[in-house]
Amino acid sequence: MIGCLCIHGFTGSPGEVAPLAEYLRKRTDWMIKTPTLPGHGQRLQLKGITYDQWFRSAEEELQALMERCETVYVVGFSMGGVIAVYLAEKYKIDKLVLLSAAFYYVNPRQLIKDIHEIIRDGWRSFRENPLFIRYKNKIFATPLTAILEFRKLVNEVRPLLPRVRVPALIVQGEKDGIVPPKSARYLYEQIGSEKKKLLFLPDSYHHVCYGPDRHILFMEVENFLLENGDY
Rank of each mutant, 00 (worst) to 15 (best):
T142Q: 02
W30K: 07
N107G: 10
R68Q: 11
M66W: 04
S183D: 09
Y51W: 12
L98Y: 11
Y186R: 13
Y205F: 09
P180F: 11
K197M: 08
V157W: 14
A18K: 09
N155L: 10
R214V: 09
T36S: 01
G76C: 10
P108D: 12
D29W: 06
Y186P: 15
S183W: 13
F224E: 01
S183R: 08
Y205W: 13
A141V: 03
V72M: 05
Y205S: 10
L65S: 00
L160S: 15
Y86W: 15
Y104V: 04
D213S: 13
L225E: 02
R43F: 02
P212N: 13
W30C: 09
R109V: 15
E60T: 09
R134H: 14
G122W: 12
L198P: 04
I7V: 07
F132L: 13
Y86P: 03
E227Q: 09
S13K: 00
F126S: 15
A58E: 08
S100A: 10
H207S: 06
C4P: 01
F140R: 10
G81T: 04
C209Q: 03
I119F: 09
S78Y: 03
Q110W: 07
V154Q: 14
I139G: 05
R56I: 11
Y135T: 07
L225A: 01
K197T: 06
I7Q: 02
G81M: 05
V74F: 06
Y105Q: 03
K197E: 08
E22N: 11
A58T: 11
P19K: 05
Y86K: 10
I83N: 06
Y73V: 05
M79V: 08
R163Q: 12
V171C: 06
R56E: 10
V166I: 06
L225K: 01
V179E: 04
R25C: 15
L65Q: 03
F10R: 00
L99M: 07
S183M: 12
T11I: 01
